[in-house]
Design a binder for these strands. Structure first.
Lengths: 233, 233
DNA sequence: CAGTGGTCTAGACCACTAG
DNA sequence: TAGTGGTCTAGACCACTGA
């Protein structure tokens, strides 16, 4: 009759979470400092620190030097949203991936694009419109603007067979991402491409990607109504 | 002329990220093992491990015992979505928070609720409909079902002045969360409460919360069109 | 100022797994 | 089965910040 086994720091973490949830460590209250917990749990401070850091990163605890550790009073839950490559995301859901390029070419940067890319409006950017299909059905409509200053050579890349995702991965990998999610009515080319009536509610994910030092591009991804985005704590 | 200062593991992490992004460590390629890196960077394996673990958690690297560490070929970016309490989220955006309860009472669990809460359909659940306001304007419409088996006493709680968020925090704190994001057309009570025409695209966040062992409830949060959700890598 | 968490070292054992 | 990452110990120094 052996235990299912877990690493000590995981068991300690679980026990601490139990104390938080049982009210033994009430919201807003201080908990013992690391050294005391190390004695109580019979391990070193490093192990306690590992468990506490993990709980703090998850939003259950708040830690401050000298101030000690307290249970979060108004916890900010941090849900994790997986953002796979578009192709991979469709494949993961068990669908056959398809791709159709609508247009790709240099255009003067529209105002909102120039602002995101931190460039003067009218400078050339690569605009890409493409449709991603799952089992032959429209799934996501991609409208993207890429900064050729950061992604050097992107204007000569061939996006007729595969989207910019993979090319960018190898030529201008992102290190930072900002995403905004909205609900928008379908309109124009996107509505037509997705095969939905204008006005149909669509989930839009706008992604702004950056290298360590410069903006790479702006992506607006419109999802077919059958699609939903999942996150977990 | 001193450096801006950063902890060694952060500088090492940054340097490793640079090597990934510069192509020195190409996607899919193996990188040296921890012991070798420790020698190269002139620190202990613990410090290297800290940096590598962080990069792996962010999705840049993939690590396996015996298999070593390799640069992620098809990286799954993990964006982080902050989920504050509803009241706090509105306050953080600099708006005055307002709350209006529409109804709260026990109802037989609808099928889809019973499924999420892992209960027989028709068993009593507490249904709450409420509107959250920002500067007096409708902001989010909350439709929630709470399992009184998990959240004992919830049927006697007073939700006329504050939403279930805070009550639940103290009486049935969640430890796991699943969230689904969709775009839906406004309809019925929600459209009326939010003051938008039926059919207006709305961003819906459906949250299923759980304690360590049992489901707590199901929340459907419909956002006013002026609202968007932000995430970051 | 002094208490607390954040981090690093030096070393060790072991679980996991690719070859 | 041998190499690799995952974790733990015991100890240390110090940045930060509340009192």
């Amino acid at each position: 009759m052996s235990k299912p086994f877990a690493a000590p720091w995981l068991e300690i973490r679980a026990d601490m979470l139990r104390r938080v949830h049982s009210g033994e460590w009430p919201p807003g209250g201080h908990i013992p400092h690391e050294a005391a917990l190390a004695v109580a749990y019979g391990c070193t401070r490093s192990t306690i620190s590992r468990a506490l850091r993990d709980l703090a990163e998850a939003g259950f605890l708040e830690r401050r030097r000298k101030g000690g550790t307290r249970v979060a009073e108004k916890p900010v839950r941090r849900a994790v949203l997986d953002i796979p490559l578009i192709e991979q995301g469709i494949a993961q859901q068990g669908h056959a991936y398809g791709y159709r390029l609508h247009r790709a070419g240099l255009v003067p940067a529209p105002g909102f694009v120039a602002e995101v890319l931190e460039m003067a409006p009218g400078l050339p950017v690569l605009e890409v419109c493409a449709l991603h299909l799952a089992d032959g059905h429209p799934h996501q409509f991609e409208h993207r603007w890429i900064d050729p200053r950061t992604a050097a050579g992107v204007e000569h890349a061939d996006f007729s067979r595969a989207g910019p995702d993979i090319w960018l991965l190898h030529h201008a990998p992102l290190s930072r991402l900002e995403m905004t999610l909205r609900a928008l009515p379908a309109e124009g080319a996107a509505a037509a491409a997705l095969g939905v009536a204008p006005g149909t509610p669509l989930l839009e994910a706008e992604r702004r990607s950056f290298t360590l030092t410069a903006p790479i591009g702006l992506l607006r991804l419109l999802h077919h109504p059958s699609f939903c985005l999942k996150a977990r704590l």
